[in-house]
């Protein structure tokens, strides 16, 4: 069984995001970039399936700027076997990404695509669903558990009000949620091995997909500043402060 795992290079989740002074976007100069946390969970799940002997090959694919190679190296260090990078300098929208992934899917013919439910930069939560629609394949989104058996995947989903379990025939698109697993740390020996694994770099434009954005961002601003809170150390102090504030 072959698994395709799309991964995206995004601003590191723990970095304090700063808006550009001209309000055209987020300042990315000298900012730490990392793999989207949901993609990391997808890689982990695919690698675990391989370690269980269920998957035979894990292929990571990224669409983005040349430094996205670093993100792919992380996927390789976690245990992916090889990687594909479709380079482009535009920041493609979910539909363009889904179309490119469709093309890669058709080349690679994997048995499953395991991917993050969303990327933390755009928060679109759309690519996986679009890919499933374009390929006309079953989809199981927001997975918190994945069991693969006999050409099928049993996927537990986190839905409003509880858990839902779906069974999908493979090949299928599975998008993962936070609680699916806790991604591993990359060991140094595996980081070194990853340097020798192949990354196939191609121009995204070669796929004939329209990459031009259809949305125009008019303005990005910071959320309004919250006034500083205080910490109280005891119930007594809390009561006194609430009295001061005239709340009680």
């Amino acid at each position: 069984m072959k698994i395709l795992v799309p991964v995206k290079r995004v601003i590191d989740y723990n970095v304090k995001v700063r808006v550009k002074t001209d309000e055209t976007g987020v300042d990315l100069a000298n900012v730490k970039m990392s793999m989207n946390p949901f993609c990391e969970i997808a890689v982990e799940e695919a690698v675990r399936l391989k370690e269980k002997g269920i998957a035979t090959e894990v292929v990571a694919v990224s669409i983005g700027v040349t430094p996205a190679q670093e993100t792919l190296r992380t996927a390789l260090a976690m245990g992916a076997d090889r990687a594909i990078l479709l380079t482009t300098d535009v920041d493609p929208e979910p539909l363009a990404v889904a179309k490119l992934l469709k093309a890669v899917f058709e080349e690679e013919k994997p048995d499953a695509v395991i991917m993050g439910k969303q990327a933390i930069d755009g928060d679109n939560n759309a690519t996986g669903q679009m890919l499933a629609a374009l390929l006309d394949l079953p989809q199981a989104t927001f997975a918190s558990e994945v069991v693969v058996e006999g050409g099928k995947a049993k996927v537990t989903r986190e839905v409003d009000g509880g858990l839902q379990t779906l069974e999908v025939a493979l090949p299928a698109i599975i998008t993962v949620d936070l609680r699916l697993n806790e991604p591993r740390f990359a060991s140094l020996p595996n980081i070194m091995k990853a340097k020798k694994k192949p990354i196939d770099i191609k121009e995204a434009s070669a796929y004939g997909v329209d990459l031009a954005p259809h949305l125009k961002v008019t303005k990005v601003t910071e959320p309004p500043k919250r006034s500083a809170g205080i910490k109280v150390e005891s119930v007594g102090e809390l009561v006194a402060k609430l009295k001061d504030a005239g709340v009680i």
Binding site: N14, S34, A186, L188, P189
Partner: peptide, 22 residues
């Protein structure tokens, strides 16, 4: 540098944080 030290038996094992969370 770290892999040289591992190969020389000076370090048993190592891991490098791949992101700020790690």
């Amino acid at each position: 540098a770290l892999s040289t030290l591992i190969e020389a038996g000076k370090i048993n094992d190592a891991t490098i944080a791949q992101n700020e969370a790690q």
